[in-house]
């Protein structure tokens, strides 16, 4: 099963343990995580299901291509990283 891990900066807001989930796309894998914590969804995606502008998702070493639909495929042994861009002062 693909494994999903989140930026440590999210832990200030929600519990985000590394999780192995079912899913053939980034969308399916993330939805499986969000089913366990519906409020976590709003930190990563907006209400339209789009990846938030300052959040990035990598599958292994590659940034996903479909920030709108999250249709990028994931395999059984893939690792999905939910990261943030850095900004502010």
């Amino acid at each position: 099963m693909p494994q999903v891990s989140f930026t440590g900066n999210l832990r200030r807001h929600r519990e985000t343990p590394v999780t192995a989930v079912e899913g053939a796309t980034v969308r399916e894998a993330l939805d499986a995580v969000f089913a366990e914590d519906p409020l976590l969804r709003g930190y990563v995606l907006d209400e339209q299901g789009r990846l938030r502008r300052h959040v990035n998702v990598f599958v292994n070493n590659a940034m996903i291509a479909d920030r709108l639909g999250l249709a990028d495929p994931v395999g059984r042994d893939d690792e999905i990283y939910v990261l943030q861009a850095l900004s502010g002062g």
Binding site: H13, G42, D46, R52, H54, V55, Q84
Partner: peptide, 28 residues
Amino acid sequence: LGHFGCKLHRSGNDGASWEELPAPAYPA
């Protein structure tokens, strides 16, 4: 939040503790 969107919290004890609520959301 700069990265993670708009959030809403509620406190029933004058701010001693807070719980997160679903934020208002535009229809998908």
